[in-house]
C-alpha cells in the first residue's frame, strides 16, 4: 500500500481527519474513509456529477479532486443538507415533485441545485438547465427535476420575503 497522508478538513460543519494515499480521489476518501456514501460514483472522470460536493462553497466533482486537496478546506455533502431533521426545501421538493426515480444522481443534483440557488435565487428555466447540465440523470428526462428546482426557488423567495 502506498504511503498515506493525514488530511484535516471540515465536513458538513464537523472537523474531520482522514489518512489517504496521495493519488486517492476526494470522492473515495469521503466514501471509504469518512463514511459518506451519499457521495456517489458514476464515472470517476468528472463527467456525470453524481459525486458533486461543495468545496469552500464551490461546486466540484469530488472524483477529480484529490483527497489531500481537502486539507484545511470546508466540504458540504448531501448528508449535510438537512438540518435538525428538517429537510432542505430542495430535498422536500424533489420528493414532492417525484424528481427522482432510481435516486443515484439525486445527491449530486441537490448539491448542484443548491449551488445555483445560493448564487441566483430566481433562475429562469434555461439557467436551471445549464446549471444542472453537469449532472447526468438517466431515469427522469430532467422534467420533474427542473420543476422541483423551480418550485424550491419560488418557496425560498416567498420564505425570504416573509
Amino acid at each position: 500500500m502506498s504511503k498515506s497522508t493525514l488530511v484535516s478538513t471540515t465536513v458538513n460543519g464537523d472537523a474531520v481527519e482522514f489518512a489517504c494515499p496521495t493519488d486517492e480521489s476526494l470522492m473515495t476518501a469521503l466514501r471509504d474513509r469518512v463514511g459518506l456514501t451519499g457521495v456517489k460514483e458514476g464515472c470517476g472522470t468528472g463527467d456525470c456529477g453524481a459525486c458533486s460536493i461543495s468545496l469552500d462553497g464551490r461546486l466540484v466533482c469530488s472524483c477529480i479532486v484529490l483527497g489531500v486537496e481537502a486539507e484545511g478546506r470546508s466540504i458540504e455533502t448531501v448528508e449535510g443538507l438537512s438540518q435538525n431533521g428538517v429537510l432542505h426545501p430542495l430535498q422536500q421538493n424533489f420528493i414532492d415533485h417525484a424528481a427522482l426515480q432510481c435516486g443515484i444522481c439525486t445527491p449530486g443534483f441537490l448539491i448542484a441545485a443548491k449551488a445555483l440557488l445560493d448564487r441566483n435565487p430566481n433562475p429562469d428555466e434555461s439557467e436551471i438547465r445549464y446549471a444542472l447540465a453537469g449532472n447526468l440523470c438517466r431515469c427522469t428526462g430532467y422534467d420533474k427535476i427542473v420543476r422541483a428546482v423551480q418550485a424550491t426557488a419560488k418557496d425560498m423567495r416567498k420564505k425570504g420575503r416573509s
Binding site: I95, L100, P107
Partner: peptide, 8 residues
C-alpha cells in the same frame, strides 16, 4: 424511499 434517497 424518497427520504433515504435525498439524504444520502
Amino acid at each position: 424511499d424518497g427520504i433515504d434517497k435525498v439524504t444520502g
